[in-house]
Amino acid sequence: MFKLTNATGGYKKTTIIRDVSLSIAENEIVALLGRNGAGKTTVIKYAMGLIDAFGGSTSIDGKELPVSTAKRVKAGIGYVPQGRNVFPRLTVLENVAAAAIACGHNRKDAEERALSDFPMLKPKASVLASSLSGGQQQVLAIARALATKPRILILDEPTEGVQPSIVDEIAEVIRKLNRDKGLAVLVAEQDLDFCLSLADRAYVLDKGVIAREATKSEILSDMELQHELLGV
């Protein structure tokens, strides 16, 4: 359903990723693995139209997506940026509402769904997002992305700086959305275990190119690869 074809891009004149091709089917959760600096975030920003594209294309259902990031979101990509980037001086509900309104969805419904999907946001509903903890901000960023009613959810390092209990909760919700609503997910992570708890399949990125594609069981049985990925 979602496809990157020969994606090549970077910043100004520097090419960071080269000929990256990957595809994600409906209902599928796919991980994008790689060490620090391998180009995971760049691949995701390419898919979102947030960096300069030098070649290649991004498509959903075979239809190439427009250049504008906002239009890509409306075409069905939900995006959770690295570092979360919640709007600090908007309340929790306003963060969710902004996404819903921007994509022309009902604000009330979106807010209610966010609170029912993520009960931990309930007591914080009307405080400023800046006063949430890192983990809560991460959850909010996911709730916000879901408010755009995406067909595929792209998460960039969702576990960064998040306490384990919340990581578990996040994994649980993603799994549920995938199971119940057929949401496709692409998750870029360094946290191998988090990825493997979700995904059935992974692309391994190294120095800006796809080094290999592997299934969950392949990675689990390959200690060498695991260590390489973690840099431990």
């Binding site: 979102m48 947030l50 504008s68 990031t69 906002a70 239009k71 979101v73 409306k74 995006y79 940026p81 980037n85 709007f87 600090p88 001086r89 908007l90 306003e94 963060n95 509402a97 902004a98 996404a99 309104i101 921007a102 994509c103 604000r107 916000r144 992305a145 408010a147 755009t148």
Partner: peptide, 23 residues
């Protein structure tokens, strides 16, 4: 709705575009 979206766009225009706001 305008007010919320406008404040979002002002606070962080890149993220705003990443949730579908045409800044």
């Amino acid at each position: 709705g305008y007010g919320i979206v406008a404040r979002a766009a002002i606070q962080d225009s890149e993220t705003a575009s990443a949730i579908g706001i045409e800044s």
